[in-house]
Structures are given as structure tokens and as C-alpha cells.
Design a protein around this nucleic acid. Structure first.
Lengths: 214, 214
DNA sequence: CGATACATTGAACAAATTCAAAGCTGGTGG
DNA sequence: CCACCAGCTTTGAATTTGTTCAATGTATCG
């Protein structure tokens, strides 16, 4: 079985390169709630998430988690730490069973960074992460709780049907109480409607948009 | 005069490539307080800061600036927006006179992204920015005002001698009042000492460290 | 001097969290 | 079948953290 060939990051590599890659990497399985790495760990491997859902978070001064991002397969995870040779800036925890390709980074750098196609993919991955970080900053520093919830309502309406409010609150880094109060406020202003089956319907998207868009 | 050769990003390029690059780029001068780009602008050029100091910030819901980073020459600025083809995620304003190399990004991508050395430099630049972003998140979301100030005291003691408290407060995204109150608290606890010439001296670095380090 | 900018201090305020209590809901076992 | 329990959700009140506003203090520089 050759899993590496199926990874978009490496799909273009020559047979010989894939063989090299296999020699410096290993696939490991993880269970739900297992930690791939902790904030502060020294990176040794470059991690590529092959299967499962990985939650990235930081711990704040009160000891509560600050959700940063959820990784879905197939993604490079926290490659920044490898490139910059710094400790992992956040903790990565599986929210489901999963599988990770772990590549010895030192050896990878020596033999693969001359490959321009691979470089371009890494550039794209890094740029994508910068975008995510930029959005995290917007969400956490620029927007108020009300604006965050308005934005989430507009952009992820369907998630309100599948997730519990506690889970949504956790994605937004808010308490369930704040989410509940804000949704009630929106209901009272006829911005949204919550039917008997707890499905959310947006009644006045313009007002919601104006709460967070500039 | 050939400025491009002196830019570390392009120093390794062949004479012929430099000529190409010249054809798709232009050097522009800016005065203090001029804006290089606003948050939300569509990127057309890849910007390389050649001279001057550039301040990157976002505007929060109250309309106040949130300081993100200060660029010094020579740096790629906000290349993420080019790579991801998204609007600029923040505003860039000169805090001094400055100079920027503006490269037509479309044309750059077509002809230069196959160059592995250049790719590697771009990777390093992106990874560096991710690190900055990660630190911004730590500072703004994870740390309390007290912890931010303790960290700044330890890591940038000398800046307290040259900058005014209002400027430091602005770098920390705090009000001067909060900074003043916190410094007074630290003085009363004998963690720091401020002499007649307003020079700050750290008396108890362990306690300061314990306020923000984990 | 006196003007202007910067720093300090106190009091009121705002946003969101925390804590506590009460209300729902859906599944389970008697 | 329904009573009950566990886990959400909602609501109110208190608390926390930092900002805002206003007043006062201090310094420096022409």
C-alpha cells in the first residue's frame, strides 16, 4: 500500500523521491482526545493530517482553551514550527480518531526543498494559514461577541442545526451564556427565527451583516 | 543605479532575471503618515519595504487602531494577500519617510515562481509572519494587561528609556492609564525601580517572568 | 515664566465571564 | 407508559478587567 502517492502534497513526486520520503516518515494512528503535540513542544516531525479532525488551541491565563482552528485531512499541521525552528505555538488535539504522516523534518529539508513544485505547495499552505490567523485576530480582537455571533450566523447557519450551543460557543471562544443571551436578543429584534425543531432561520440578513462588516 | 541587486530577496538572481524584474516593478517614495494600503484594498503589487518604518494595524469596533506589527527594511509586506488573492487584512501606514519596491504580482508569478531559491526565501518570509501572528494572538488574547506589560518590561527594558509611555501603550494595545497604573503597582511591589531620569530598572525578574511565562 | 504635552489618579462605565438557580428535553429503566 | 435523571439551556445577579472621562499634577522648552 502506498499512501504517500495519494497525498496531494506529494502526488507530483517522482517514484524515487517517494521511496526516499517513505524512508524518513511513518504513519501513526491516534484516538479521540489524544494530543498530537503540546504548545511548547520542540518540533521534530513535519505532520500531515491524513485522517480525522484535529483541533488547534491555546490555553489562556485562566486555563481555558482558546480555539484557533480545526484541521481536516489532508493538511500540513503547524509547519511554521519546523520552518522557524521554534516550539509549537499551540496544542493540537484529536476530536476524532485520526491518522498522521510524520516526516523527519531535518531529513526532509536536506533532500526536498529544491523541488519547486513542492515549494509552491508549501507556500500555498503557509499563505492559507496566515489567512486563518488573520481571521482569528479579526474574530478575537476586532469583533465584539455580538458581531462574532452575527458573523457565524450568516456564514455557518447550517451548523446551528447540527451543533449544540455549547459547541458553537466553544468555536467562538464565548461562554454558552453569552451565546444564549445574544441569540435571544436577535430573536426579540426579529433578526432570526428559531422553530420548534431548533432550526435557525435568518430573517434580516442586512442587519446581521451590518453588525460585523465594514 | 541598480537597487534590486541589493535586495536580499533577489540577490541570487541572474542578471537576466533582474532585468525582467525591473521591467515589472517600480520604486516609490512615501512620506510619514502616508498609507501604503488600506485594509480591504485589493492587492495588485507585491510590496517590498526598502526604507523607512511601516506600521501595520487593524481598526477595531470602536474605531481605535490595533497595532499588529512594525516592518523594518528590507521586508516583504503582506504577501499573503497576493498569494491568497484576498483583500489586505490590515492597514499599512508609514511612521517615517520610506521607500517601497512595487512589483506587479501577476507578472511575477508567471515568471519567477519556478526559482527554488526564491521560493525558499518566500517560505521563510511567510513562516516568519506566521510566527509574528502567533505572537500577536498570544499577546492580545492569551495575556492579561499585567502580563503583557511584564513581558514587555523583560523583553524590551531599554525601550522604556527611549519611548514615551503613550507610545509603549500603543504598541501594547493598552491605554496610557492602564500602563501607568500597572507600572505603579509593579513599583509598589518592588518589582521595578524608576529613577530620577525615568530609567527603568528591573529588580525582580523572576516575579515578572512568572506573570506571563508558562 | 507660561504653554503645551505628557502622566497620574479617581470614579463611572462597558463588555463579557462567572456563579448560582431554575427550566427543558430526551432517553432509560422500572 | 411515565417518572426521573443527566445534560443542556436560559436567566439573573455579582464580578472582573480594562476603558473612558474628567481633573489634577508635572515637566520641558521656547
Amino acid at each position: 500500500m502506498n499512501r504517500i502517492k495519494e497525498i496531494p502534497f506529494f502526488s507530483h513526486l517522482a517514484e524515487e523521491d517517494i521511496k526516499k520520503l517513505k524512508n524518513i516518515s511513518v504513519i501513526k494512528k491516534y484516538n479521540q482526545k489524544e494530543i498530537l503535540f503540546y504548545e511548547g513542544d520542540e518540533p521534530k516531525y513535519l505532520h500531515i493530517l491524513l485522517d480525522g479532525v484535529l483541533r488547534l488551541y491555546k490555553i489562556n491565563h485562566k486555563g481555558t482553551q482558546i480555539f484557533l482552528h480545526q484541521f481536516l485531512p489532508v493538511s500540513l499541521v503547524a509547519e511554521l514550527a519546523n520552518f522557524e525552528q521554534i516550539p509549537y505555538p499551540a496544542t493540537a488535539e484529536f476530536t476524532s480518531r485520526g491518522e498522521v504522516l510524520k516526516i523527519d523534518y531535518q531529513k526532509l529539508e536536506e533532500s526536498f526543498f529544491k523541488n519547486p513544485e513542492l515549494s509552491l505547495k508549501i507556500i500555498k499552505s503557509l499563505a492559507g494559514k496566515l489567512k486563518i490567523m488573520s481571521e482569528v485576530i479579526t474574530n478575537e480582537i476586532v469583533l465584539t461577541a455580538e458581531a462574532k455571533i452575527a458573523k457565524f450566523l450568516v456564514e455557518n447557519t447550517e451548523l446551528f442545526d447540527t451543533l449544540k450551543n455549547t459547541q458553537i460557543a466553544s468555536l467562538l471562544n464565548l461562554t454558552p451564556e453569552t451565546l444564549s443571551r445574544t441569540l435571544t436578543k436577535f430573536k426579540n429584534k426579529d433578526l432570526i427565527l428559531i422553530d420548534e425543531q431548533n432550526k435557525v432561520e435568518i430573517l434580516n440578513i442586512d442587519t446581521l451583516l451590518s453588525m460585523y462588516a465594514n
